[in-house]
Write a protein that binds this DNA or RNA. Sequence first.
RNA 1: CGCGGGGUAGAGCAGUUGGCAGCUCGGCAGGCCCAUAACCUGCAGGUCGCCGGUUCGAGUCCGGCCCCCGCAACCA
Length: 482
Amino acid sequence: MSIDKYYITTPIYYVNDVPHIGHSYTTIVADTLARYFRIKLGKENVFFLTGTDEHGDKVAQSAEAKNLSPQEFCDEISAEYKEAWSLLNISNDYFIRTTDKDHEKRVKEIFTKLKNAKTPKGNDVIYQDEYEGLYCTGCEKFLTERDLEDGMCPDHQKEPEIVKEKNWFFRLSDYIKDLEAKILSGEFEILPESRKNETLGLIKQGVGDFSISRESVKWGIELPFDSEQKSYVWVDALSNYITALGYPDDLDNFNKWWPADLHLMAQDILKFHAFYWPAILMALGLELPKREFIHGFFTIDGKKMSKSVGNVISPAELVTRYGTDATRYLLLAQFSFGLESDIKVELFDEKYNADLANGLGNLVARVSNLIEKNFSGKTELKEINIKTNISENIEKYKFNEALKEINKLVAESNQLIDKEKVWELVKSEEKKAYDVLSELASNLLFIAKHLKPFMPETADKIEKIFKAGKIEKPKEALFQRI
RNA sequence: CGCGGGGUAGAGCAGUUGGCAGCUCGGCAGGCCCAUAACCUGCAGGUCGCCGGUUCGAGUCCGGCCCCCGCAACCA
């Protein structure tokens, strides 16, 4: 398979929550892949999208609680995401917000298309039906069984009423067989394998139609053909992946990037991306994304992450303690991407010191110092090519394995210094010392090259040090020990 | 019988298509002194949750059992 462009997305994050380590993880992975493919395919052939999902009841309520209009509230939280991504040096090409006027306009056009579309079986894609649910007049919204305590609304201490409201539904059932076939054939890839199996299992259990509008929701996009109804999350949020490209009015740009090469997400939204989204695309007559990769949730010190427990880690905390590049490194190096993982907070310090301060940072200091002191900062750089599986591992989403290989290169350079006793060699055999140091500097450039997608600033620093006319030991350690 | 993940050295984790069990930290003993008290070498430590099966050979495949955890609820 030859790839000539790469379109990668993160989910759009719901503004009801501020950015935490989970959002950061997904976004750092996306950024690393985007940077990797920019090097491989050229900057102009990669499009990396992230953004925020801003409609819905919960947002309206949170806004009210803070005495803000929904839009003001969204502006505030959305800005927090942008700031977090800037702290983490995220290189997204675009940041979409579902309250963008462009997006809202395009979503309406998509609704119109869906309204006019027929399923392969000749049925209307969307139809009106009654949604029956438990409605709390206090909350002014539908509750689920799980929301209730002893059959009562926990906030208003009264029993919800059974209320029916008319909603528009999407006829997913007419697409599910087709979808199953595409998943089985690999035309639509769901990774890892276990998530694909989970998806196929869900299909076996039966997947019903889903509702795409709400009468009771006020903060949302109005349906173009029914002014009583607002869009309910799915069509609005999922379609960000194509409205961001200009669909349906800027088809030139859209066709350049679509279909997406990779949608990244965590397990919570698997169902929507495995069923709803592809079905919507089929109804619009568009190609499905090539691949979706679903990763697991984090627990923190064995406990699930939750606001009420108060163990939520923010990206800013990590960046303050470790710096941008080290935060990126620690998140990617410590976990097998895809699996559910437990974050052990003390291990961040341990890994930071072992790999970055004692490992890479110290090596850069050793080599640059030896060159500066003994050869007036002069050396002979060679383009070297060590055979590694770093690229293969990145393309297989094995970021921890790729970084492990880089660490091995660091260790080998440290071993070489000791084996050759370079600090003695510079006194006894100047020529040989020069050659060994040239090799070491070249190794570091090789390491920097492969580190670029993971730690862009560090890679630049290393290149700057060793490509300088006069190599000098950096005044400030690359990674200060903690 | 809701869905899913996991149980591998003291701790935390890797283990691609089955082929002599690896990594990091920690422990112990050396070396080195160029470097961020960093680096290098060696040693100790594992019945790979339990039972059974397939195989010349299983942590790895199959079946059963035990234990832990996540999702389904603010949340990637």
